[in-house]
């Protein structure tokens, strides 16, 4: 295969409406850090494709670096409003008032969710209009920038923090649920918005750097919780097109020992994916895109095989029991 040049990659913005415009959504601290490296890359490359950034965070620091920002910091007034009228807000706000009033501390709420994913969900409920307006105006900005045939949301986040990991579920939910989607796409074609793609950092490095003894478990526990929720979402068909993870290191000597290193790599990965979108899709249309919906794991080494047959869910009813540690196979 011949090496191709940038000139060949650069879309003709005026005419090529099949090319997507990218709505990049940095979510939480790691998302913002990833997006900064992506923006630097995009700028250095001379902006070969249309891209708008709309950052979402419960910590307002650094939001000004993006095209648009949705500040989810909760004010004292909002806290008072939630406390006095919990029924007027969503389930997260109600749960906070009823079960965890200690989390509704205005002193700390303005400075990020600090691994409490529930606080981000409550902030989404409080700032619902701002979130929807932020997405809508960003989509309009993008369409003004380029005649995009489709808008591809690209979500950047970490899966262990308080804001990014919650937003990794909440933003796809928002974009997929007609109640919100219709408001975001008001006056536009309902098909213009593609399923989002998530570029997510698994923040092992961040967890391991914590000096607090409890924090690493909370961060890593959050990753697991987010993963189970993502899986649950996907089962219901509400998930993203792909979720691309970036872990701690590989067995070839590359270890991301600092969170900024992994965020930089994550931003670069996402940018390269966008820059090579056409090539990537041409490779995945009849492979990955197809099997994503149809293929299912058929190994027997699933946890359900450890519990008595009568208690198993239907999909695991016929699986052989696992008694020993070694995975069994059909021939055994």
């Amino acid at each position: 295969m011949q090496a191709s040049s940038d000139a060949a990659d650069t879309p003709n913005r005026a005419t090529d409406i099949a090319l997507p415009g990218y709505l990049v959504v940095p979510m939480g601290g790691a998302g913002k850090a990833s997006a900064l490296s992506m923006i630097a890359q995009h700028r250095a490359a001379g902006g070969p494709f249309a891209m708008r950034t709309v950052a979402i965070d419960t910590d307002p620091q650094g939001l000004e670096a993006f095209d648009r920002a949705i500040n989810l910091a909760t004010t004292r007034e909002a806290v008072s409003a939630i406390r006095s009228n919990p029924r007027c807000f969503g389930p997260a706000c109600r749960a906070l008032v009823r079960h965890y009033p200690y989390l509704l501390d205005p002193e700390t709420l303005g400075r990020g969710a600090r691994t409490h994913r529930l606080l981000t969900q409550a902030a989404f409920e409080i700032h619902e209009d701002a979130v929807i307006n932020g997405f809508r105006t960003s989509i309009h900005d993008l369409l003004k920038q380029q005649h995009a045939g489709i808008i591809q949301p690209v979500l950047l986040c970490s899966l262990g923090g308080g804001t990014g990991s919650a937003a990794a579920l909440l933003v796809p939910h928002l974009l997929a649920t007609s109640r919100y989607r219709d408001r975001i796409l008001l006056g536009l074609s309902p098909d213009i918005l593609a399923k989002p793609v998530i570029f997510a950092v698994d923040p092992y490095a961040h967890a391991l750097q914590q000096t607090n003894e409890i924090a690493p478990d909370w961060i890593l526990g959050n990753i697991y919780a987010t993963r189970t929720e993502l899986a649950e979402y996907e089962k219901a068909g509400k998930g993203c097109m792909y979720t691309i993870h970036l872990g701690l290191g590989n067995n070839a000597g590359a270890v991301f020992s600092a969170i900024d290193m992994v965020c930089e790599a994550n931003g670069l990965l996402a940018w390269e994916w966008m820059a090579n979108y056409t090539l990537f899709r041409s490779r995945t249309t009849d492979t990955l895109d197809f099997t994503r919906e149809t293929c299912r794991y058929q190994g027997d080494d699933i946890p359900e095989s450890r519990i008595p047959k009568q208690e198993r869910p239907p999909y695991a009813a016929d699986r052989p029991d696992i008694e020993s540690g070694a995975p069994s196979c059909v021939s055994c």
């Binding site: 570029f199 993963r227 189970t228 899986a231 996907e234 089962k235 998930g239 993203c240 097109m241 792909y242 979720t243 691309i244 993870h245 970036l246 872990g247 590989n250 590359a254 790599a265 990965l269 994916w273 990955l288 099997t291 994503r292 919906e293 293929c295 299912r296 794991y297 058929q298 190994g299 080494d301 699933i302 946890p303 359900e304 095989s305 450890r306 869910p313 999909y315 695991a316 696992i322 020993s324 540690g325 070694a326 995975p327």
Partner: peptide
């Protein structure tokens, strides 16, 4: 010897890892 998440057979193959 076990996949550490419930319901794997129901999960969609839509995850990736990048480097």
């Amino acid at each position: 010897g076990m996949v550490a998440m419930w319901g794997v057979p129901d999960q969609r193959c839509c995850h990736g890892n990048a480097m």
